[in-house]
Nucleic acid binder design. Structure first.
Length: 290
DNA sequence: ATGTCTGTTTCCTA
DNA sequence: GTAGGAAACAGACA
């Protein structure tokens, strides 16, 4: 599930346990640990204080510091990525509610790591284990890990966005999903953004007009902003995402049957009328509110 | 049983 | 850099 809005939601669920001390670490499945053994992971994390979590794109960082000490650049950080099926749940000690983030279809929770902290329990879950959890040694290591990512899609300025697009070639959808132009957009968000901006996913970046670039930027900020508010890409009737499941469903804006195809290796939904391949036409249909 | 699909990323080859 | 495929994994579905 997780794209930028979901991960932002996980970050916010951690806010109540900022400053808490890690009492116990249970590695239920060491397969999610990247570059660190379960033994070392437990030893290094147990006893540490959780500092303020922060997010870049789909990555979630939780710096650790030792009790009674200020933050240092060399303090380690927990770094979480949720792949396609991960999630984070924080409770205050009661058994976690059924369902929720990172839970599989059959209701299995797929808890992989459980952190017991003072005043709460943090569950890292992930069915498919496509990504995982890292323990990095300091701010420099974190910066290196995130080094290839573009600016966060939720906060990039229009000027920076234009600069990121400058000189780049290729199709719109693969570029937006590549994390290098902007970080945090996934398959659903990109389809939603391109539909709102009325741009065909296969359009060439280099062929965008200034007006179209502006439309793309506005659509991105609006869609990401609204999605963060709801903790996910909402499947509202007025959004494209609400109609992905139904083959040939009418475009919520103009009624034309939506088209489904494969672009950049991913299933892609678009409106053949509002999002013409050549960029002309269909400027008339107005965007409806979120 | 077998093949295909999936809200991700990385690694490999043209 | 860009494009395309495969792999990592664990299912659901036809």
């Amino acid at each position: 599930m997780p794209e930028l809005p979901d991960v932002e939601g996980y970050r916010q669920t951690l806010l109540p346990v900022i400053g808490a001390r890690v009492v116990r670490v249970e590695v239920l499945d060491a397969g999610v640990l990247r570059g660190v053994s379960a033994e070392v992971f437990c030893r290094e994390v147990t006893g540490e204080i959780l500092a303020s979590p922060w997010r870049h794109g789909k990555w979630l960082m939780v710096p650790l510091r030792s009790p009674g000490r200020r933050h240092r650049r060399t303090d380690p950080s927990l770094v979480f990525h949720f792949g396609m099926t991960g999630g984070m749940v924080v409770t205050r000690g009661e058994p976690p509610p059924p369902g929720g983030a990172g839970v599989g279809m059959a209701g299995k929770t797929y808890d992989r790591i459980v952190f017991t902290v003072s005043g709460g329990v943090v569950h890292y879950r992930d069915m498919r284990k496509l990504q995982g959890v890292r323990l990095l040694g300091g701010d420099r290591d974190v910066a290196a890990l995130l080094g290839d990512l573009g600016p966060d899609a939720g906060s990039i300025s229009s000027g920076d966005f234009a600069a990121q697009l400058q000189g780049r070639r290729g199709q719109l959808k693969p570029a937006l999903m590549g994390q290098r132009v902007v970080a945090g957009l996934g398959n659903l968000l990109v389809d939603e953004i391109l539909w709102r901006a009325r741009l065909h996913p296969s359009r060439q970046i280099a062929g965008l007009t200034g007006v179209e670039r502006g439309r793309l930027y506005r659509a991105m900020r609006t869609v990401v902003g609204q999605s963060i508010k709801r903790g996910r890409v909402p499947d509202l009737p007025s959004w494209l995402t609400g109609h992905r499941a139904v083959e040939g469903a009418p475009c919520p804006r103009c009624g034309t049957p939506l088209q489904r195809g494969r672009i950049g290796g991913r299933t892609t939904i678009w409106c053949p009328r509002d999002q013409p391949r050549d960029g002309s036409a269909a400027e008339a249909t107005k965007v409806s509110g979120p």
